[in-house]
């Protein structure tokens, strides 16, 4: 692995976190973003579970797509097959964690089943294939790094937003805005602020 490769991987990683953030830029996975971001610790647990599932799901779906679906000309089956695989994978992961890592299972346990059909996870596995189609050098390793970066990006978005929401709790909000409305306004502002990262990664990794 030469310096060029490492550099491109870092660029992919940073891009996945900042400029292509799945929550704040692609607006996928909004459900957990709004639902589980009330407290910092639950937001952290959920994000860790999402990151793990994203990486493992990509590790399975990428070869499946490249070596089984593409040679048969069955690219159109990707959504169906990916959902099937991800659901089974999450279930398997949950069983394995329960057996071998009970403390981790107890902290992630509630969130794992929720991720089964999370659109951010499906989005990561599917959108990475588009990148691979556009750029032939975007292979398996790059996809994994992208998945990991997307998970970390999800974590960053969740933690930032959980912090914002914890501060919102103390504010005197007009009655009409209380609850979900102010949460959505806050979410849009956080998303707008993430637009500021556009172009940053291209410059850094040149």
């Amino acid at each position: 692995m030469d310096a060029q490769m490492i550099r491109s991987l870092v660029a992919i990683f940073l891009a996945a976190i900042l400029t292509e953030n799945y929550v704040l830029n692609k607006f996928l996975g909004i459900c957990p973003f709004l639902g589980v971001s009330k407290k910092l610790d639950t937001a952290f647990g959920m994000s860790c579970a999402v990151t793990v599932v994203m990486v493992i799901a990509t590790a399975v779906t990428w070869p499946l797509y490249t070596y089984i679906l593409v040679p048969q000309g069955l690219e159109y089956l990707q959504t169906l097959v990916f959902i099937l695989v991800i659901a089974a994978l999450v279930q398997l992961l949950e069983t394995a964690l329960h057996k071998y890592m009970p403390p981790l299972y107890n902290s992630l346990g509630i969130y794992l089943p929720l991720i089964t059909t999370n659109c951010a996870v499906l989005g990561v596995t599917m959108l990475v294939l588009e990148k691979g189609a556009a750029d032939p050098s975007f292979g398996f390793v790059q996809s994994l790094v992208n998945a990991f970066g997307s998970g970390v990006g999800f974590l960053v978005a969740m933690l930032l937003f959980a912090g914002v929401r914890e501060r919102l709790e103390d504010c005197d909000i007009p009655e009409t805005f209380r609850g979900l409305p102010i949460t959505l306004v806050a979410a849009s502002l956080v998303a707008v602020s993430f637009l500021g990262f556009n172009g940053v990664v291209d410059r850094l990794a040149g």
Partner: peptide, 14 residues
């Protein structure tokens, strides 16, 4: 066949 086999495989593994 492909979807069936993948589903069956996932089921058996689980």
């Amino acid at each position: 066949m492909i979807v069936g086999i993948i589903g069956l495989l996932a089921g058996v593994i689980l």
